[in-house]
């Protein structure tokens, strides 16, 4: 199993380098740089100041020199300085990362739990009314923008009923401890997690249904039934376990999409995470910060895919053989 993960890690290296170069070149295509934005916001600056700022952040070097400088920095595990916040990029990103991870892990967990349960129910009663009702509900959810559901949930639960907060990740100005703190955080997380999860609930439900219908036709399922196993055992041990393989592959692939989708959810709920930091970096032309975010989130995706490989090796031991 460790050999498998080491191999995947090696294979990821060219991908990460590709991402790095692609992003670096892409970001240099953005018109204007951070110094322009800074100067604009401070109401203009003299030509000498601009030159001084540019040389401070290394923006006066040629493109290839900048890339080389960045790569050398990176080899020392240094993501550079953010001109916008005048702080190390790694510090900014690591500050926000836990918030985004909380949102994503919550949403992914919720989506997998509800999605797989709904998909199993649909496949078990395929063609009958539970399947029809659930299929329609899932298709509706699959077609609805998550942030719109979030907005409507804000309207119902925050504006009309006043049950849940609709902004931020904790109540400001309160010094809460223990259970009260946890409850406060949970209340703030409910709506964002729900808004991010809806689309993926529908996606996993559809995938699980399709994969289970495929597996149900296999000979070994008939054998399992013929040898007198209870229907529940056939479904859980023989059908679902094999059907989870394609679901887990796609869950790994969707992690990148989930990370991107968090940008909208975070903006909607004022959640201080990576998505909002990305938008701030784009608006202020802060390439170093943007590059750091893109690089770290891509590496996160690579790591998640390695975890998915390991999970699959556990689900289907045959995969370890090759």
């Amino acid at each position: 199993m460790w050999r498998l993960s080491r191999r995947t890690l090696w294979q990821a290296i060219p991908t990460v380098i590709g991402i790095l170069v692609l992003n670096f070149l892409l970001l240099r295509l953005i018109p204007g740089d951070a110094v322009d934005v800074l100067a604009g916001e401070s109401g203009g600056a003299s030509a000498e100041t601009l030159i001084q700022w540019r040389s401070h952040f290394g923006l006066d070097l040629s493109l290839m020199d900048q890339l080389q400088r960045y790569l050398v920095q990176l080899a020392h595990l240094d993501l550079g300085l953010s001109p916008r916040f005048n702080l190390p990029v790694s510090q900014l990103v690591l500050d926000r990362l836990p918030n985004t991870l909380l949102l994503m892990v919550g949403a992914l967990g919720l989506a997998l739990a509800i999605g797989i349960a709904a998909g199993t129910a649909m496949a078990t009663w395929v063609g009958r009314w539970p399947d029809r009702v659930l299929s329609l509900a899932v298709l509706l959810l699959y077609s609805t923008p998550g942030f719109w559901i979030g907005l409507m949930a804000v309207l119902l639960f925050s504006v009309k009923l006043g049950w849940l907060p609709n902004n931020g990740f904790q109540t400001l100005g309160l010094n809460l401890n223990g259970p009260a703190w946890l409850l406060d955080r949970l209340q703030h997380a409910v709506l964002p997690v729900l808004a991010l999860a809806t689309f993926y609930i529908a996606l996993y439900a559809r995938l699980t249904r399709a994969a289970m219908l495929e597996v149900q036709r296999q000979d070994y399922v008939r054998t399992a039934r013929a040898k007198g196993l209870t229907p529940w055992r056939v479904v859980s041990r023989h059908v679902l376990r094999n059907a989870l393989l394609p679901v887990s592959t796609l869950a790994g692939l969707h992690f990148a999409a989930l990370l991107g989708g968090a940008a909208v959810t975070e903006t909607l709920f004022g959640w201080p995470g990576l998505g909002r930091l990305t938008l701030e970096a784009v608006m202020s032309r802060d390439y170093n910060l943007l590059l750091g975010i893109l690089l770290l989130s891509s590496m996160l995706v690579v790591l998640i895919n390695i975890a998915v490989d390991l999970l699959q090796a556990w689900l289907d031991p045959r995969l370890q053989a090759d």
């Binding site: 991908t15 990460v16 991402i19 692609l22 992003n23 892409l26 970001l27 953005i30 692939l253 990148a256 999409a257 990370l259 991107g260 989708g261 940008a263 909208v264 998505g275 990305t278 938008l279 784009v282 943007l290 975010i293 893109l294 989130s297 891509s298 995706v301 690579v302």
Partner: peptide
Amino acid sequence: QTVPSFLLVIVI
């Protein structure tokens, strides 16, 4: 596929 696609859209 590894770069979060929505972030890529924002950047472009």
